[in-house]
Design a protein around this nucleic acid. Structure first.
Length: 861
RNA sequence: GGGCAAUUAACUCAGCUGGGAGAGUGUUUCUUUGACGUGGAAAAAGUCGGGGGUUCGAGUCCCUCAUUGCCCACCA
């Protein structure tokens, strides 16, 4: 092994070997149990960011362990066409080129989009490889590839024929200048100073008025009701009556709806279903007429009476003037509010009603609610179960048409002659009803989530009846982000149930986000992001990966810190050097299995400690508590294996070389395997240097516990060593100064004597004198008392005896505090009668021990 | 506005079903003994956001207030 840890020398090489040997690929094998993860597909145009580095690594860690555990582990990678955001990006690019999608036309635009897909396809995948991800790259999928297109088509036809797809009305964002509907993402909200106009509407057959407040008086021409809150005492008696719509002189009803806030404005809202999304919903609930008064060009239309032909802005002025004249304008309040603007041309968005395609959700949602409620599908973090059920139980029909030019087609053809709608798995040549060839295809595209919803199916072969699908589906765990629980996770669940009759996955891990070091979300606009690739170049992949997990609760947000990556790199260095030590010791030795050698006390101790770690780590892995598993592992490696065992082994190597080498190799091999899912490269690199290794650590077997030993003596030895070191530090004895020590053993001399080497070596003791009784101790020294032995450190020349006395008194005082605490607890009748007996026994034992220790110490003062 | 989280040592965060407050960083002291100075040994440091309550016992459960963050919906 090289002297220094330099990941750049082996990471790429190792990954190529793995690829070459096809370790990542999984094939149907009935003799093995499958374990499947489908990767949430990143947007094809995206670059690797810290969020991927975290989320995808979670999956890699899980899948690598499962593979080692003997499962037929499959992790399917893929990318998403993300129609809307890709189209948005391309449009910006076209803008720079001085053109637009309208100028290009649909065909040319589609070509450009496909070029984009090709251009970007490679980038993020290459970066994922650099991260070390063990996906089955042969199965790389794309949400727009042939199979996905067929899957989408099949499902669409299935839903349509089942009567679950229908055409309905919906409010969309309309830009009157661009003459096109635009997506929510393209709407910029800006705070605009405006007014709140208070208008009075006369109540039918009465001289009373009701006052409404509005920011958009011009829409009153489309009013079909006014609404109040049903709980509002002021208006309760008016509900059901009609009011006269001023200027229009039409009767409209007063309705009651929870949507109305009593405290805002006057507590009365005019309802214009055709020009406001909320009003539209209210209109649906109350079956109101929809009157469109603003045309697609932003000009008041034929429903606007004398205002027809005016622009929205002019109409507003005119209407306000007319209201003033007719004394129906009560007051004008200054008010600024958020107004949506078209991002491209900055025109104010007009919400207008339009025809869209919907999926009827009620029947689909039902079984999807059930499987989560009964735990068939389990959110590893219970809080998200609520998020999910809340959404599903109040599910609205899913609008699946989008007014964009790229993405999956909506396979609906309409006969221009007889109006027949044709929805089939193939493109029709003629109308089945009137045999006309005059057919029009739907121009709108499908919502991106429509194909995403099928992802766990399509990646495994759907719509074909493939063996893979039979074998690997349902998958095991879905790892994804919390903001898409409803948009994506929910849709995958009902899709899986509807088309496969089976849930798509049984467990869901929702990971937190990696925030920037300033505690805010990493974002391009803030410029506070860190490029994972930079970190890899600087510290290596393993350091980046491990730093994202060590001590982090993966379900909660964490903060990125380069300092931590650096410290993790130091840990890698530690692993490297400890391994070098092991390799140096075992050089030329015949390494036996630990079951074949006579283990020393230290060997038994580290094996038992390792058993504990295997146990803890397995439990944490099974709960997907990866961050805690990582910190258990680093704690063991650094604090147990390096700081203690390797030091002990330096003593044993003389008298117990055989067992020492066997144990060093066994423990190192085992801990490397446990670490491998987190830090695949360094572990592989070292593993291949160790004796008796398999072809690769990544296909070696996951560790199992060896037998446990009684380690009380070693634990006490460690305690003794710590105490002596403390005493030395307390007395400012430099570490390099050797001292003498006297030791009195009360019984079990043979066993305790096995630890003398350890104590001497680790405490800088030149000579350990064994005594038979108390009286033989030198007079002025530091007396250290333990269960079974007393140690005296004759540091007379260095010790100020009054200070030593003070130290002892301080110790006694501490013990007094402990004793008092125990006694108080044990004298509390409530505690005695209600606390569990084991706890009480424990407390009693502690009390006895402390009392005995106190007596010993008092003798020394 | 609705929903959800968080508030623990100077900093970043752990603390599972209630039973004597933990880690890492930073600070201070000592240390170049052949794996490692990207190291080793030790020390100091907390009224667990405030206030109530349940309990023999609360960082942990309940209520309430405050602050911060996230998601969703965006208001006539």
């Amino acid at each position: 092994m090289e002297k220094n840890y330099d990941p750049s020398k082996f990471e790429a090489k190792i990954y190529d070997t793995w690829l070459g040997k096809k370790y990542f690929s999984a094939k149907v094998d009935q003799s093995k149990t499958p374990f499947t993860i489908i990767m949430p597909p990143p947007n094809i145009t995206s670059k690797l960011h810290m969020g991927h580095a975290f989320q995808e690594t979670i999956q890699d860690i899980i899948i690598r362990r499962k593979r080692m555990q003997g499962y037929n582990a499959l992790w399917v990678p893929g990318t998403d066409h993300a129609a809307l955001s890709t189209e948005y990006m391309l449009c910006k690019q076209l803008e720079k080129e001085g053109t637009s999608k309208e100028q290009l036309g649909r065909e040319k635009f589609k070509e450009r989009i496909e070029d984009w897909y090709k251009q970007y396809k490679g980038t993020i995948i290459e970066q994922f490889k650099r991260m070390g991800y063990s996906c089955d790259w042969d199965r790389l999928a794309f949400t727009m590839d042939d199979r996905n297109c067929r899957a989408v088509r099949k499902v669409f036809v299935h839903l349509y024929k089942k009567g679950l797809i229908y055409k309905g009305k919906r409010i969309v964002n309309w830009c009157p200048k661009c003459r096109s509907s635009i997506s929510d993402a393209e709407v910029e909200f800006k705070d605009v100073p405006s007014h709140l106009w208070h208008i009075r509407y006369q109540i039918e057959n009465s001289d009373n008025f009701i006052e409404v407040a509005t920011t958009r008086p011009e829409t009153m021409l489309g009013d079909t009701a006014v609404a109040v809150n049903p709980k509002d005492e002021r208006y309760k008696n008016l509900i059901g009556k009609n009011v006269v719509l001023p200027l229009v002189n039409k009767l409209i009803p007063i309705i009651a709806d929870d949507y109305v806030e009593m405290d805002f404005g006057t507590g009365v809202v005019k309802i214009t279903p055709a020009h406001d999304p909320n009003d539209f919903e209210v209109g649906l609930r109350h079956d109101l007429d929809i009157i469109k008064c603003i045309g697609d060009d932003g000009i008041m239309n034929e429903n606007s009476g004398k205002y027809q032909g005016l622009t929205r802005e002019k109409a507003r002025e005119q209407i306000v003037d007319d209201l003033k004249l007719s004394c129906n304008l009560v007051k004008i309040e200054d008010y600024s509010h958020n107004v949506g603007h078209c991002e491209r041309c900055k025109t104010i968005i007009e919400p207008i009603i339009s025809s869209q395609w919907f999926v009827r959700m009620n029947d689909l949602a039902k079984p999807a609610i059930e499987v989560v409620e009964n735990g068939t599908v389990k959110f590893m973090d219970e809080q998200y179960k609520k998020t999910y059920l809340n959404w599903m139980k109040n599910i609205k029909d899913w609008c699946i048409s989008r007014q964009i030019w790229s993405g999956h087609d909506i396979p609906i053809f309409t006969c221009n002659d007889c109006g027949e709608i044709i929805v089939e798995e193939y493109d029709p040549n003629e109308c089945p009803k009137c045999h006309s060839h005059n057919l029009t295809k739907e121009l709108d595209k499908l919502d991106t989530w429509f194909s995403s919803a099928l992802w766990p199916l399509s990646t495994l072969g759907f719509p074909d009846d493939s063996p893979d699908l039979k074998y690997f589906y349902p998958t095991n765990v879905m790892v994804t982000a919390r903001e898409i629980i409803n948009l994506w996770v929910a849709r995958m669940i009902f899709s899986g149930i509807e088309y496969m009759g089976k849930i798509p996955f049984s467990e869901i891990v929702i990971n937190g986000i990696v925030k920037a070091s300033d505690g805010r979300k990493m974002s391009k606009t803030l410029g506070n992001g860190t490029d994972p690739i930079d970190m890899i170049d600087k510290y290596g992949v393993d350091s980046l990966r491990f730093s994202l997990f060590d001590g982090v609760a993966i379900q909660s947000d964490s903060r990125f810190s380069e300092k931590k990556v650096e410290l993790t790199r130091n840990f890698m260095g530690k692993i490297w050097n400890a391994s070098r030590y092991v390799l140096m010791q075992i050089e030329g030795e015949d390494i036996k299995d630990i079951s074949q050698v006579d283990l020393s006390l230290a060997d038994k101790w580290i094996i038992t400690e390792l058993n504990k770690v295997i146990d803890m780590v397995d439990k944490k892995f099974d709960k997907y508590d990866l961050g805690m598993a990582a910190s258990d592992l680093s704690e063991f490696f650094w604090n147990k294996f390096c700081d203690w065992y390797i030091e002990f082994s330096k003593c044993d190597i003389q008298n117990h070389k055989e067992s020492s080498c066997a144990t060093l190799v066994y423990v190192l091999t085992t801990i490397l395997k446990l670490l491998h899912p987190f830090i695949p490269f360094i572990t592989e690199n070292i593993y291949l240097e160790l004796p008796n290794h398999d072809e690769s650590i990544m296909i070696s077997s996951w560790p199992k516990k060896y037998k446990d030993f009684d380690c009380e003596i070693m634990e006490q030895t460690i305690n003794i060593i710590r105490t002596i070191r403390n005493a030395r530090a307390d007395k400012k004895v430099p570490d390099n100064k050797k001292i003498q020590a006297e030791i009195l053993i009360k019984n079990n001399f043979d066993i305790y004597s096995q630890t003398f080497d350890y104590i001497s070596k680790l405490c800088g003791i030149s000579e350990l004198k064994i005594l038979n009784n108390n009286n033989q101790f030198q007079e002025n020294g530091i007396m250290l008392t333990f269960n079974n032995l007393v140690i005296n450190l004759p540091l007379i020349s260095m010790v100020d005896s009054s200070a030593e006395k003070e130290r002892l008194l301080k110790e006694i005082e501490k013990l007094n505090f402990e004793i008092e605490r125990s006694e108080k607890l044990l004298n509390n009748p409530g505690f005695i009668s209600k606390a569990p007996s084991s706890l009480i026994e424990n407390e009693k034992e502690k009390l006895q021990k402390n009392k005995a220790l106190k007596i010993d110490l008092e003798k020394l003062v």
